[in-house]
Amino acid sequence: MRATAWTALGDETAEDVASMDTTIREILADSGWLAVDVAALSDGDDLYAAGLTSHGSVNLMLALEERFDIEFPEQLLRRRTFESIAAIREAVTGLRNGTAGA
């Protein structure tokens, strides 16, 4: 799981990935959008099954944009982009590397 995620990360180092994961998990934990403890979720777990609603996912997006200083383009504004911590990390990484939505 980790290894495959890394290969897709381009310039990002292992350290960046770890800190991004921590930040994403912090946002999720602080938000109260999930019905379960974030610590109990693995990177690939379905966030919608964990209680994320469409209303919650909009606020998650806004929090990610603010924290990572990015803007999600229209083609990433779909359910799949926010379905797991791994998917969010991939989208954020892509946006920071300028390869998003490809």
Partner: peptide, 13 residues
């Protein structure tokens, strides 16, 4: 209300 929420991030392209 739901649309208003989506418009916080949606861009009309």
């Amino acid at each position: 209300g739901n649309t208003a929420n989506l418009l916080l991030v949606h861009k009309d392209t």
